[in-house]
Amino acid sequence: MKKFVHDFIVAFNNRLNSRHFILELQSPLPLPEIFPGQFVQVLVHNSPATFLRRPFSIHFVDYAKNTLSLLVQVRGEGTRHMGMLKPGETLNLVYPLGNFFSIPSSGKVLLVGGGAGVAPLMFMGDYLNRKNIRPDFLIGFRSADEVSQIDEYSKYGRVFLSTDDGSMGEKGFLTQHSVFSQSSFPYDHMYCCGPDAMMHAVAKLAAAKGSACEVSLENFMACGYGVCLCCITQTDKGNERVCVEGPVFDAARLRW
């Protein structure tokens, strides 16, 4: 798949809460076809501390506006800098990178995301709807003040919610949600993105319920296009590159 590297123009910088924001980036060139689960490598300028690019899942693609959006959690200097970008400023991306979620031909779909890990699921929800598949979402947040975009997700499917402190939705980790304690589990396919520990737990539940499960990993990487070999994960085929063979893997293949 052809890859590109060029500046995008910041169309919007939408602060969701104290830790998260959405950057909507407009391309000066017509966007190529992009698939849910793929990511971009962002160059953050002007600091020795932000030497490498930072990988981000693609949160949404709007071909009509020729934009792609990133859902970003403030973690360090790079994401802080990105959070201060104003409309009209530019951001250099390498894209589209990595593989993508498989699209099921039949069966019921659950999209599971925690924290900023929910990022690729909006795009996946939209994509599935365009393929006439209506998924359910299970989204976990720390607390009510971080819950955002529920109306947006609801456009694409039913939304189940959990918060660690119980301030909204069901209380506890999303793996403790009552969705998983139904007498007959209705989902044939699960797609999951979030912290490693959460994905482990979800993959285990999926295996126990007999549901297929794909997870999107976010290992540390330098290049993002397969040459540095830093982001490897162990699979049934040995070491594979999260940036090329992934970031999406069938959870059953991982030796993590």
Binding site: P48, A49, F51, L52, N219, F220, M221, A222, C228, L229, C230, C231, I232, T233, Q234
Partner: peptide
């Protein structure tokens, strides 16, 4: 893994 660290 991990095989990489960003440094100044």
């Amino acid at each position: 893994y991990p095989r990489m660290a960003e440094t100044p």
